[in-house]
Structures are given as structure tokens and as C-alpha cells.
Design a protein around this nucleic acid. Sequence first.
DNA 1: TGCAACAATTTGTCGTACATTTGTTACACA
DNA 2: TGTGTAACAAATGTACGACAAATTGTTGCA
Lengths: 240, 240
Amino acid sequence: MAVLERNNNLSQRMTQQLGRAIVCGDYSQGESLPTEADLCEEFGVSRTAVREAVKMLSAKGLISSRPRQGIRIMPEEDWNIFDSDLLRWSLEGNPSMRVLKEFLQMRIAIEPEAAALAARFARSERKQAIGDALERMRVAAENTENELEADIDFHISILYASENRFYIRMRDFTRTALNVSIRHTNVIKANPDGVIEDHAKVYHAICSGNAERAKNAMFLLIDEALGFIEQELEKNGDAT
Amino acid sequence: MAVLERNNNLSQRMTQQLGRAIVCGDYSQGESLPTEADLCEEFGVSRTAVREAVKMLSAKGLISSRPRQGIRIMPEEDWNIFDSDLLRWSLEGNPSMRVLKEFLQMRIAIEPEAAALAARFARSERKQAIGDALERMRVAAENTENELEADIDFHISILYASENRFYIRMRDFTRTALNVSIRHTNVIKANPDGVIEDHAKVYHAICSGNAERAKNAMFLLIDEALGFIEQELEKNGDAT
DNA sequence: TGCAACAATTTGTCGTACATTTGTTACACA
DNA sequence: TGTGTAACAAATGTACGACAAATTGTTGCA
């Protein structure tokens, strides 16, 4: 019998448990999950709890459930992969370098343009938040934990500074992407001062309202990581 | 007593009804929705149905519900606005030109880069799908309905051709964005042949594997619309 | 062989009862 | 008067049982 964690309420825990299992590939695509009745037994909970979990997962596009057919995994392209929970679950699934590449390919579209918008439209508080994060990166240079956190805040502040709800909504995506990065690359640490200076260039371009330069500076920042990854992937074929 | 549509099952209809109401701003941010009991009465359904709807909406980030506090609208920045349902609901809410601008600002990040990736990585079936859509645009030149559909397919095929799950996942976003566009702009019709040719340039660049040119061609395509909108917004201040 | 009727399976909906969480009120005590 | 605590109240959380509805498979008859 599967065991559930203690936090939150029962249906939320069920949701997490099942969601993680699906995202991590424990059930293959198109396959049928156990029926509600079976899940009740397996987890030792009432049908109410199971049904609420199923509803939440189907709201995220992971599954669909119909009479007689039972519960089916939806094709992966229908999953709401920008959902915060899904991002978290897939992060826990120890993503491959290939996935990291996909994250970076997406970031390289979003973040340079976000920086450009920030340069044009950001309110002053937003700009200040970027500066604060940059300063914290400088201070935390020795502490890897804090540095990652400040780094994440830097990139997210820029999303907010775009003053566009769609960019802002990418914050969990960017956060996850950076967390994935840190698992695969120590290249950043090779030249910490250089990295900080590259971030500073983005910040200054935004502050001075130079959209084109902000965009380019951010592009370079991400493109470097992307280039590194593509190189690694070619070398190893398919290593984790 | 509110009336529900006929389609789907009860909790899905409840979800749509409530979701639409929230997205359209019938309840203001931070406000409390009626309690489960009140919703049961208002819609004349059982608590089960209401609760399942609430769970689905909270899975989409629209609301949160806790004992004693009741059901609360979440701040808008926590909504999963890339969720297909949310996009559809907000489309039904007659979006303003300001929202259209946000859509275009996002598309101008995504689609040029998608085209670049397509030029580098697309499998041949994917390229063919783009070509098919382009051909259908040509044929449907007179029929506005069909033309929009073909146009949408063109842009979505390119997302698929990027061979990156995150870009592919943007398909509902792009579909919605184009549907929003069509409500606000007839500029496209001014010079139909020119528009088709601009699309064709993107297609040919992708086919010939020229990432840089594909990117630029797509950029121009969207930037034109964006420029038009920004101009309109400056003119009118804040018209619909 | 084709079609209709039936049966079985699974989710969908309802109602009730009680548990749990959390905010508020009221009271006792210093 | 202020403070801590106990009791209460209001909302969601969980469980169970019953039946409805939908879908699919099967059986049996023309």
C-alpha cells in the first residue's frame, strides 16, 4: 500500500503522489491507470479523495477519465507543462541534459525579449528589484545556495519588469530551469566575476532604457549556457 | 438560480461557469466567493459537484479554499494563464486592445525563435505540415473563416517543427492570440497577397535550413502587427 | 451476417454524517 | 485592564452508501 506524506490535505497529497508518478513516467502514455476503486484500496482512502485528485490532475491536462474507460494518461503534448506543480514534479524526476537544452531553448526566446520590454516599460520599483538581486549575487559569491537564489531572483525580477502578464507568468518556468541548470553545469563557477559582470550589463542596459542592448546582453548570457550544453550533448551522445 | 449548459458532465460545467465568471472579473481579486453551501443552492447541485469544480479551478491557480476562510480568488499573477481553458475563457471576455498587445509581445519572443529551431531541427513531416497550411492560406484567400484557420495552422505547425515540448505547448496560446487579433485588426486584409508572401518567406527559410532568416522573417511578420497596435493604442489612449 | 437487446463495468451525482481547521468570542485570572 | 486560554462557530475536509448515467462487450435472435 502506497504511503502518503503528512503535509496538506489528503486530496492534495493524492494529487502530488499520482502527478509525480505520471510525470516521472511510471505509467506510460495512453495507458489506463487503476480504477477509482483500486486507487482507493491502494492508498487506503475514500473515493472522495481519489476523485478530487483525479479532477485536479485532469484540470492540469495529465489525465482524462470517462465512464467505463477508466482513467487514461493524456498524450504528453496536452500536459500543461507550464503549471508550477508539473514543473516541480518534473524537476524531482531528475531531468536529463536533453531536457535542460529544451529549457534553455525556451529561455533564450523569453528572457532577452523580457529584458527589452523591461528597458522600455519597467516602473522604477521593478528596476530596483533587479538591482537588489544583482547586489545579492555579488555578496553571496561564496555561498552557492544563496547565489543561486539571488540569480533566480535576478531573472525573475526582469520578467516582472516587462510589465506583461505572460512574461510574469513564466517565473516558475525560469525558476525551474535555473534549478535544472545547477544540476548539470558547474561551468558558471569557473569564472564567477565574469558571470556577475554579464548580469550587470543586462541591468545597466535596462536602467538606461536601451532595449536593444538589454536584449543582446541577456541573449549572450543564456546563449553561453546553451552553447555549452549543445557541445556536451554532441560529445556524450545521451548521457544524463 | 444560475443555469448551466448541456454539454459534458456537471462538475465540468460548473468549472466552466465559475471559471469564466472569475476570469471575466465578476468577482474581484482577493474577494471571497460564496461558500460551497451557497453555491450548491445557487446552482441547484450537490456539494460533490461544487467541490470538484472548486478543485479543478484551484488546480488552475484561480482560487484557493481553506477551512473557515472559504473560497478566495487568487492574485491574477498566480493564474495559469497558459492553460487552454483559461485562454478560452478570457477570449470570451472580449479582450481589450491592451491585452492584444500583451499577446503580440509574447508571440514576438516565441515564434521567431520557434522558426529558427524549426529551420535547424524540424523533421520533414513537420516542414510539410507548414507547407500544407501555407497552401491552404493561398486557396482560402477569399473565405475569411478558412483563411484564419489556415493561418493558425501555419503558426502552430512551426511550433511543432521546433521539436521542443515547450514551444509545442504554446499552441493554444498562439491560437488564442490569433483569434484575439482577428477581432481588432482588419489591416491584414488590406494587402492579402503581401501577407501570404511574408508567410512564404518564413516557410522557405525553414525548408532551406536557414535559421537566421527564418527568425527574421517571422519577426517581421509579427512586428508589423505589433507596430500597428502600439500606434493604435497611442492614438486612442484606451479604446476597446 | 447483421442488428437489437441486455449485461457488466466504470465513472457521475447525490445525501448524510462526522472530522478537522481556523478564526472569534467570552471568560477567568493575574 | 490586559492577557492567556477555553469554548464555540463556521467553513472546508473526509468517509460511506446508494443509485444514475454512460459506454462497451456480449449474447441471442431474425
